[in-house]
Computed example of a mutant assay.
Amino acid sequence: MKKFLRNIVLACMIVFFAVALSGCGGKTATEKAEKPVAKTPLTVHYGYQPGHVQIVVAREMGWLKEEFEKDEITFELEKFASGPAMNEAFAGNRIDFGQVGDQPAIQLKSNNVDVKAIGVYSNGTKITGLIAANGANINSPADLKGKKVGFVVGSVSHQLLYIYLKSAGLKPNDIQQVNLASSDILSSIASNHIDAAVIWEPTLSNVVASGAGKLVTDATGYKENINVIVGRSEFLSKYPDITVRLLKVLDRAEKWIKANPDKALEIIAKNSGFKPEVLRPGFENVIFDLRLTDEAVKSIAETAVFLKENKLIRNDVNVKDFVDDQYLKAAGIQ
């Protein structure tokens, strides 16, 4: 009997101390969940280039703020002249996302910068091309032999130039290669510093509109121009939800642009500094489709092979590892 009473007293003491400790030792899981968690402000850095559309429209229409402000997340957009310049920012961890052509994106990955392509912001064959100065007597890629040709080293124009040359039976050393910033192409053509250039929109149409040069050919039949949205792998892994929400905002902008092309053109003209009439040809020829389609992935893979064969990258790039469509799928876009 005494043993029975002793066990009861012992059990009561254990319960008493357990309750006491739970009261002093902290909140229950339910109470913790009910208590608001302090939000840590976060700034997301996003790189783009003059003439890029979705991200600029999303900002100007207030959709980035609408989606992220409640969580104290701010997007800072930074404009770059070209993909290679943006690559430097990625390498220095100064941006989290960026919009570049497939060549600079693959070169970035080849240089051991841990990034992934998570979407396509634009594509098409009429948004890059070969332009020639008036009087240069250049009417096809075959006429480039011996000429001074400007392009942005490490950009999509670099690859396209080499494709043009190969199609005409020429090699890179058959021309005088001139590395230029995209912003210097027009003045270089106008001053006859170069005879021709391979460049993208809106510089392409700007040269033609100025009267300083003419379009010789676009990329139709030569190369599908795939421009990708690249994200730092560290950021993607740490903030997958932000990545998915961002893609949803860009998808919203894409749909609005297709339904309101003239209004979108006004927004981009104001942001880029180019006149609407200069932007319009490229705007009408570009294809907006965020998806990483089989065709897009195939084109990216072909670019990777081309770059390695032409010794424009040192390390092989596994495109299956580089391209990551899980965020598009989670957003219901892919």
Score class of each variant (00 low, 15 high):
residue 54 Q to K: 13
residue 303 T to H: 09
residue 193 H to W: 01
residue 222 Y to D: 07
residue 28 T to I: 09
residue 215 L to R: 05
residue 69 E to Y: 03
residue 109 K to T: 12
residue 83 G to R: 10
residue 139 N to D: 09
residue 69 E to K: 03
residue 122 S to T: 15
residue 100 V to R: 07
residue 79 K to D: 00
residue 147 K to V: 07
residue 33 A to H: 07
residue 258 K to G: 09
residue 167 S to C: 04
residue 296 A to M: 11
residue 88 E to Y: 07
residue 96 D to G: 03
residue 330 A to N: 08
residue 96 D to S: 08
residue 221 G to H: 11
residue 201 E to G: 02
residue 229 I to R: 07
residue 61 M to S: 00
residue 239 Y to E: 14
residue 159 Q to E: 15
residue 305 V to G: 01
residue 303 T to I: 12
residue 167 S to I: 07
residue 265 L to T: 14
residue 158 H to V: 06
residue 169 G to H: 10
residue 25 G to V: 07
residue 164 Y to A: 07
residue 200 W to Q: 09
residue 193 H to G: 13
residue 321 D to T: 01
residue 82 S to M: 05
residue 80 F to M: 11
residue 80 F to E: 04
residue 282 G to L: 11
residue 104 P to A: 01
residue 306 F to W: 09
residue 191 S to P: 08
residue 191 S to A: 10
residue 237 S to Y: 07
residue 80 F to W: 07
residue 45 H to N: 14
residue 310 N to F: 01
residue 271 N to E: 15
residue 31 E to L: 03
residue 303 T to F: 03
residue 220 T to P: 03
residue 267 I to C: 04
residue 129 G to H: 06
residue 2 K to S: 12
residue 142 A to S: 15
residue 143 D to A: 10
residue 91 A to L: 05
residue 153 V to D: 02
residue 175 I to R: 11
residue 211 G to S: 02
residue 183 S to V: 14
residue 71 D to W: 10
residue 109 K to P: 07
residue 126 K to S: 06
residue 43 T to P: 10
residue 30 T to H: 02
residue 240 P to A: 10
residue 238 K to D: 08
residue 237 S to E: 15
residue 20 A to G: 08
residue 168 A to T: 12
residue 180 L to H: 09
residue 96 D to P: 04
residue 62 G to F: 01
